Amino acid sequence: MAIGKRIKFFRNKKGMTQKQFGEMLGFLGKTSDVRMAQYEAEARIPKFDLLKEMAGILSVSTHALNVPDIDSYIGLMHTFFALEDMYGLKIKDIDGELCLCLDRNNPSYLSMFDMFHAWQQQSAKLENGEISREEYDEWRYQYPALDTSGHYAKVPSQELSDLLIKELDKDSKKK
């Protein structure tokens, strides 16, 4: 997830408008919401000092806002956290083994399940000697072009996802 989407995600989680957040950061008047809109749309990228201030207000680490660097363990962890937020990826202890799994209640569950299932099938073929490491790598690195399961799905836009979540929240509050 890109930095602008992360800023918006955590701002919304705190229940703040762009204007409120911008004012807390010291942007005055009409410029407060405009500046925040620019950061969220990634027309502007906040410098590290501003990013630190944003993180402080949002009560998150700067790693949670930044595009994670998967070449570090902390960056990798924040990548997993972003995947949990976006796609319902969960970590569970199953018989003493830590496992990543999908949350059945997440709107993207069916699409993600189909894609993960196709990946698991290819991985099993590799383990069983049905395909070579080169064939497995070719499948992964050219995904979805070489996926014959036909189960890959296009991920919905963030705007559509936000709208669906908003409507689900409204619906659950009515109940």
Rank of each mutant, 00 (worst) to 15 (best):
S59L: 09
V60R: 08
C101T: 08
D93C: 09
H63R: 12
S72Q: 07
D171E: 12
K14Y: 04
A2M: 15
K170R: 15
L160N: 07
I45C: 13
S157N: 00
G15K: 07
M54Y: 03
G129F: 03
K154S: 02
D171F: 10
N12C: 08
A124Y: 09
S72F: 03
G15A: 03
F27G: 04
G26M: 12
Q121T: 12
W119F: 08
I131D: 03
E23L: 14
F113W: 08
G29F: 06
M16T: 02
L98T: 06
S61Y: 11
Y152P: 00
P156A: 04
I3H: 13
G88V: 05
L51Y: 11
A82Y: 05
A145Q: 11
S172N: 12
S59M: 05
L102Q: 06
Y73M: 10
L50K: 15
T62V: 14
H151S: 07
V60F: 03
Y143M: 01
D49C: 05
I70A: 10
D169V: 10
A37G: 02
I3A: 14
K175A: 09
E23S: 13
P144Y: 00
M16W: 13
F80I: 10
A2H: 15
K13Y: 08
V67R: 14
W139Q: 00
R6C: 05
G4N: 14
G75I: 04
K90H: 06
L28S: 14
R44C: 06
D71C: 13
M16S: 02
I131H: 07
L28A: 14
L100D: 02
D71Q: 13
G129P: 02
E42Y: 15
W139R: 01
A82C: 05
L76I: 05
G88C: 01
P107H: 08
Q121W: 10
N12V: 06
E135C: 10
L102C: 04
F10I: 05
A64C: 05
Q122P: 03
E23A: 12
Q38V: 02
Q20W: 07
L163N: 08
L98N: 07
P68N: 02
P68Y: 06
K47E: 10
L110T: 09
W119Q: 00
G129T: 01
S172T: 11
I45T: 14
Y141R: 09
F113G: 01
K173A: 15
F9T: 05
A124L: 12
V34M: 03
D85N: 10
K52G: 05
N12Y: 06
H117K: 10
Y136D: 04
G4T: 15
A37V: 02
I3R: 10
K13R: 14
L28H: 12
